[in-house]
Design a protein around this nucleic acid. Structure first.
Lengths: 327, 327
DNA sequence: AAAGTTCCTGGGAACGTTTTCATAGCCTGA
DNA sequence: TCAGGCTATGAAAACGTTCCCAGGAACTTT
């Protein structure tokens, strides 16, 4: 049924070794022979069997991607970008969602790790010990987890946050609320409070809550109660909750309150008003993590040291921010 | 480095055959022996090598899922549901996005088809001939493509559409605009016009356009120009474009115009006002397609005939629809 | 007690590649 | 002209399983 290397060899009048070389090391076979082999292969519709190849030890040609929740609109563009990037390097991406559950993540990793050459773990729920142990068995790259001797892609919101503060200050705002639902990247480096203070903006933090739409809904009246004229939300989804409830409360955006999200998901660009937000480039995230992972795979034997790369952010001003109201 | 069946056999004092049977046909090995093998395997941390298994002919244990665009918020919940369903059946899901490009789809299928036991093709761009030819080589299930002798999951919007019509009629609407961007499921069976006519509602169709946010933006003034008090949009995204632009034009929703979307994506539940929409259950879609595919895989040899199953829809009333304005 | 069954286990081939090693032909340089 | 090196090719082992086949042990049945 399925056409193997042997049949190609027969058709081309060469040995299987030569056919194999024609695909994996074309420069080692005489041009004329190469042509014959390639033509025979094309005529028969031959495609190498990945199982046999990886059994022999050539790797699986697949990169694994473990994501906490695909339904979070932050991830699809990243997955997409990783796929196209990986494809260009000859890899397939095996993506798995693990519902933010540690048990699911462990099970998923176990079932996937034999099928891939390496793993990108997004916001893993695993303990540092477990991650290091895993890294000993298979090349991994973690995103937003700081574990020694493991390559990491680190998101930095610093630029976006300080741009947001300046943006609000330029609009004359003085009081801002931050709706916190625990982003690991905010716990690092210069604090969000420092950035806002640097722009001479008073920042009140509320939470931590769950990162859901309802959190924004619940937070909206608190913003008004604090007499704040601006909000920075944990992410776009929470910001949309704020927008929703402010409308219900009769407060206009940006007339009475300016709202800023984080992530620049699809949600931000299609809301009414469209949402000013802090963008983290999915393409850059994807390119970096694939780069780090292929690097780790290539250096598996030779022991290339782990690397950390930082991916920045920037403010994308849209319609949900504007001049502070005069009081 | 990696632990194989042979080492387990040695540790348990049995042959490799027995170890293999302990995992693939436990009832064929004596309980005591089984216990010894399982313990040895656990102690060594043994996990079967999928490459070897599939090379031998046991299938890959993977289902392929080809999607036109993951960034479309309709898909993530489906992918998620398919994964959890497949996992319960012992399968892994290999998802690939192909950007709605036929060339990408062909390439993707080629690179993926050897790694999976079967394929679910969502809204494939492939010709019917190609699909049938593909079906001859590997079990496939198509979604929303009608090709003879190939199993299909078919989305039916009939129920949702007629509920939408009745819903609007009950609110006193008489004129409605439909923003068309070509959904194959609307071209089948009772037409959308018939459903609206049955509810005594005049329906004006505009388009076809591209299914984008901007399409809704562009369509909004046309709705007012038509003197319609209700809109049915191609999907939630387009509906959000309408919402956006109606707000800019000073028309209130649902005060002046009622808006209905299709798909019930995340967008619908987080917009302001929240969007009345026609829901197609992602879980049912996922369960059905996995079911059909595993069926096709199991019946590969025995030649089980292709099946078609229909997945229904229903209206989810939210805040974007209300009483028609008095004129 | 012999013959037939059933149950459990082990040996070994096969799956489709890649890669090491060997070999044969050819070229280079003195 | 011949030693030595390079190039192109083939033979065969190995990767980790599964599964067919065979055989021994333990039961039944007569």
């Amino acid at each position: 049924m399925t056409v193997t290397i042997r049949e190609v060899a027969e058709a081309a009048g060469v040995s299987v070794s030569t056919v194999s070389r024609a695909f994996t090391a074309p420069d080692q076979v005489k041009p004329l022979t190469l042509k014959r082999v390639l033509e025979a292969a094309a005529a028969l519709g031959y495609a190498a069997n990945p199982a046999a190849r990886s059994l022999r030890g050539g790797g699986t040609g697949t990169l694994g991607l473990i994501i906490p929740d695909i339904a979070n609109p932050f991830f699809p563009p990243i997955i997409k970008a990783m796929q196209s990037r990986a494809r260009r390097l000859g890899y397939t991406v095996l993506m798995a969602d693990c519902d933010e559950q540690e048990a699911d993540e462990i099970e998923t990793i176990a079932s996937v790790s034999k099928r891939v050459d390496g793993l990108v773990l997004w916001a893993s729920t695993l303990s540092e010990t477990r991650l290091r142990e895993l890294a000993g068995r298979i090349p991994i790259v973690v995103v937003n987890r700081d574990v020694p001797e493991v390559s990491e892609v680190r998101i930095s919101l610093a630029a976006g946050i300080s741009q947001a503060a300046e943006h609000l200050r330029a609009y004359g705002h003085r009081k801002c609320v931050f709706i916190n639902a625990s982003r690991p990247e905010l716990a690092r480096g210069k604090s969000i409070h420092d950035s806002f203070e640097a722009a001479d903006l008073a920042l009140t933090e509320i939470g931590p809550y769950e990162p859901r739409f309802e959190t924004g809904v619940h937070a909206a009246p608190l913003i008004l109660a604090h007499n704040a004229t601006a909000v920075l939300a944990h992410n776009d989804l929470v910001a949309l909750g704020v927008l929703h409830q402010l409308a219900n409360l009769g407060a206009s955006v940006p007339g009475d309150v300016s709202v800023i999200g984080i992530d620049d998901t699809l949600l931000a660009s299609v809301s009414t008003p469209s949402l000013t937000t802090i963008r983290i480039s999915p393409d850059e995230l994807a390119v970096r993590s694939v780069e780090l992972l292929t690097e780790a795979i290539a250096g598996r034997e030779s022991g290339v040291p782990a690397r950390v790369v930082e991916v920045g952010s920037r403010l994308v001003p849209r319609a949900s921010t504007g001049p502070a109201p005069n009081r």
